[in-house]
Design a protein around this nucleic acid. Structure first.
Lengths: 242, 242
DNA sequence: AACTTGCTAATGTATATACAACATAGCAAA
DNA sequence: TTTGCTATGTTGTATATACATTAGCAAGTT
């Protein structure tokens, strides 16, 4: 095993065993280089990688300390619906239900960080997989950042594909819930009877501000969201509900 | 700006602009150290950090190459329900509905990687927030890995808290969907009328195998799942539906 | 044609050193 | 008591160097 890995193991065990609790100081680079008879750069690498993995925190001038326990996060892949369908070797097509310029509802204006009463672009598109509706994409777009949104052909390319080209995005947030569809949504999904729907609300940012807010509604019977995660540092999980 | 950061910027621009497409070779450590008049170690750091961020791939003996585009993932925080409730300064309590040793249903046996007909532990617990039911935790546990599961008091500590202590976990996978609750679930949630529920299926691993499978059912009206992500490298997002 | 050998270039690990930037404690002066 | 300075220790950046390990290619051998 590489020397830096030996040092990592050593510190890792101290933390996992509980011998070093939260905020406990970790031996400095110089101390470690003496203890293990390695150069400071090698000891440094061990500490740095532990810091990247979130097990310790380092502050220049002060030292290295065992990181506080964190609640664990899970990695969920949320992909472009069109790509997902094509990946299953199924046929995708889209129907544009709404494409307009409207005065933003208050909730939308605040979500897009615009003043109340501002005008925004609004699109509603139904996505089909092998002829069955699997998603309503109800989207409001910031016209200042994407002025030519309304002129696009969203049957050819999804709004996402266009937005990705125009605005390099830097952030996104999601809210997932289970809802009963409205009458309007029911008809857009071509569903006979009401059924639970998985609804994802998504807001996206680029450097200059909020780009768009989308509400994605999926029939529960035709959609699932999958995710997988691996823990680098199992001992550090405090309160993940697992 | 630090020298290694200058080099990173340089390569980053080449990739973002499209000048260097997927799999395009990146200047070697030695080339970069000449071009930028820095030591090889400094050029190396730039390439290494780019590799950690997923923009390039490196293979010893061969070289450094622009990484293929990847679909983007979102980071969802899925926390311990008890902690989440307490964080809102609300009151949490749990009611144990089922705690038994049963022959595993086929689906469960295969999920836990046990032979059909094997016996497993089974618990069902309802979690309350300020007196309102917010989650049914229906869990099957591998008895080989957690032999004393049935002897625990899950009113005091959630199954998660116990499992975390006993088995340091290394992996987890999730499946999220919207469903209508069964009659049984309806009564466990003390709901008058059926309403859409957000259902999370979770499987967890430790080093030695599958630890447990849990089905978490939340009334849609009382639960939302939130997540937030930041992109380190916006240009590399290919098909995230954003 | 198939296999082997050896060379070259690239990344991976490790060392020794120097200086910069920052945090903190302790001490001195106001 | 408060303010400000300094000494010391710690992490951050950078350099020059050496050797190990691996991939890919080319020449030679069977």
């Amino acid at each position: 095993m590489a020397k830096f890995a030996v040092i990592k193991e050593h510190i890792y065990r101290k933390i996992e065993s509980g011998e070093w609790p939260e905020y406990h100081p970790v031996s400095s680079e110089n101390e470690l280089s003496e203890q293990f008879s390695v150069s400071r750069m090698t000891a440094r690498r061990a500490l740095q990688e532990l810091a990247e993995e979130g097990l310790v925190t380092r502050t220049r001038g002060s030292g290295t300390f065992v990181a506080p326990l964190k609640s664990q996060s899970a990695l969920l892949t949320i992909r472009n619906i069109a790509d997902e369908i094509r990946m299953r070797n199924h046929k995708h097509h889209a129907v544009v239900r709404v494409l307009e310029r409207v005065v933003a509802p208050n909730a939308v204006a605040s979500a897009l960080q615009l003043s109340p009463g501002a005008e925004v672009f609004h699109s509603v598109i139904t996505h089909f997989e092998n002829g069955h509706a699997v998603q309503i994409e109800d989207r409001y777009v910031n016209p200042n950042l994407v002025p030519q949104y309304l002129e696009q052909d969203f049957v050819e390319h999804t709004p996402h594909e266009y937005l990705c080209e125009v605005t390099p995005l830097t952030e996104a947030s999601h809210l997932i819930e289970a809802v009963l569809p409205t009458e309007q949504q029911l008809s857009w999904l071509a569903l006979e009877n009401p059924e639970p729907c998985l609804q994802i609300q998504r807001r996206t940012w680029c450097r200059d501000g909020v780009v768009s807010q989308a509400t994605l509604t999926h029939p529960g019977s035709r959609f699932r969201l999958g995710g997988h995660m691996t823990f680098k540092a199992p001992a550090r999980v405090s309160n993940a509900e697992v």
